[in-house]
Simulated assay, not measured.
Amino acid sequence: MSNGARHAFGVVAGLLLPPLALAGLLYGIGEISFQTRSAFQFPWYAVGVLAVAAVVLAFLAGSRLSPVASLLGGLAYTALGLLPLLEFTGGPRLVLEGLVPARVNEGYLALGHSGALLVVGVMLLTVSLFPSRWRATVPEPLSVSPAYGQGTSPYLPEDATRPMFRE
């Protein structure tokens, strides 16, 4: 896969996967919080949703697809994680309530006020900074002169695996 195609797939993955993982995280935490508080039971399906969201985040953080995916997701998670924390400083009301269902909003408030969204966002931004993730997966082929086998070249190392020449 060429480097341009890898980054194009990274942009698509960065636009699609972080919102899906965020929806899973917010729904899972909100559902666990609601069910344990109101019905005194533990919803195992919400744990499954959290596990799928964790797998998606791990794919964003560790894949060789492109660091653009984790960069876009990291920017979004960091921004969403900073909003509730900026309210603590006495600033204006930044967290809008009523835009999402109540359980998802409860999950957002739990993850946002605890700083977990900020931690995930900074983690995704950090894994985007490694230079090895920006390089192509296949190295460029070396151009070799046609006179390679005819004597030694000061630019090419001697092959140590070749048997010694004996007369």
Results as ranks from 00 to 15, higher is better:
120 V>P: 10
24 G>H: 07
21 A>E: 04
73 G>L: 07
52 V>K: 02
50 L>G: 07
33 S>Y: 08
125 L>F: 09
87 E>G: 11
40 F>K: 13
53 A>Y: 04
50 L>C: 02
129 L>N: 01
80 L>S: 09
72 L>W: 05
121 G>M: 08
114 S>K: 07
105 N>C: 00
23 A>K: 01
120 V>Q: 06
39 A>T: 12
62 G>C: 07
46 A>K: 04
51 A>I: 07
46 A>E: 04
89 T>S: 15
23 A>P: 01
40 F>T: 01
119 V>E: 05
21 A>Y: 05
67 P>C: 02
117 L>G: 09
94 L>K: 07
129 L>R: 11
129 L>F: 04
124 L>V: 05
60 L>D: 10
58 A>F: 14
123 M>A: 15
87 E>Q: 15
118 L>F: 10
74 G>T: 02
66 S>V: 01
111 L>S: 07
66 S>F: 09
59 F>Y: 15
68 V>G: 04
44 W>G: 13
65 L>V: 14
70 S>R: 09
36 T>Y: 04
126 T>F: 15
126 T>N: 09
124 L>H: 11
56 V>K: 07
28 G>R: 05
41 Q>C: 00
100 V>P: 02
30 G>N: 03
96 L>A: 14
81 G>Q: 02
100 V>A: 15
116 A>N: 04
119 V>F: 15
80 L>H: 03
64 R>E: 14
68 V>Y: 12
58 A>R: 12
126 T>P: 00
86 L>G: 07
56 V>C: 02
80 L>G: 13
70 S>P: 08
76 A>N: 01
52 V>Q: 01
102 A>V: 07
108 Y>E: 05
89 T>V: 13
77 Y>D: 03
123 M>F: 15
71 L>Q: 09
81 G>M: 03
77 Y>I: 01
118 L>I: 05
93 R>H: 14
103 R>D: 14
119 V>Y: 12
109 L>N: 13
99 L>D: 03
42 F>I: 03
